[in-house]
């Protein structure tokens, strides 16, 4: 059974441990700006919303990439960017309707969540259980799926 990140914004206190863990594990620095998971702060409502790639089935990022720099990791199901192949064209950043691939100016490549090879650091670092890594069936990704289905092909076909 493949697993997914389950995010419960109601439990998030905005401590940013996930961003620090992500940037440290992936980029070697404690720098939220380099994190692939972002916590959005709705000041007016005192609400925090952690947000990252859902590894969606449509994988627009992967299909739009002109040079096959994004591939599916068989074990985790993550869509993973290969830095040595990515040319930094940024087409994936506009193709993903969730806005979860970002350009990294300092490397000239893009970055996105790769589920850390199946053991995501953000989930381990989150002290409140707002981010957990669970069996894909439990995550209730329906809302995201609806958003995805609305994006280009009306019905999702079975292929």
């Amino acid at each position: 059974m493949q697993k997914s990140l389950l995010i419960d914004p109601g439990k998030c206190t905005g401590c940013l441990q996930c961003e620090l863990a992500c940037s440290y594990d992936n980029e070697g620095v404690f720098n939220p700006a380099k994190s692939r998971i972002k916590v959005f702060n709705f000041h007016d409502q005192g609400r925090f919303v952690p947000y990252t790639c859902t590894q969606c089935d449509e994988a627009w990022c992967l299909h739009a990439c002109p040079v096959e720099a994004i591939t599916v990791d068989r074990a985790s199901g993550a869509k993973v960017v290969a830095d040595d192949i990515c040319v930094g064209c940024k087409v994936c950043t506009i193709a993903c309707p969730f806005g979860t691939v970002n350009y990294n100016q300092s490397t000239g490549k893009v970055m996105k969540c790769d589920l850390c090879g199946g053991d995501p650091e953000c989930a381990k670092a989150c002290p409140t259980g707002a981010i957990t890594y669970v069996d894909a069936d439990w995550t209730g990704l329906e809302r995201m799926r609806t958003w995805a289905a609305k994006t280009d092909a009306g019905q999702r076909a079975t292929a």
Partner: peptide, 28 residues
């Protein structure tokens, strides 16, 4: 490029008899 990718995928599904309707390409 993104339109070529979306078109290619959706055209092929229809060719193979898996109906998929395209909502239209977005100039981007």
């Amino acid at each position: 490029q993104p339109t070529a990718a979306d078109h290619g995928r959706i055209a092929a599904l229809n060719m193979a008899g898996h109906p998929a309707r395209y909502k239209g390409s977005l100039a981007m």
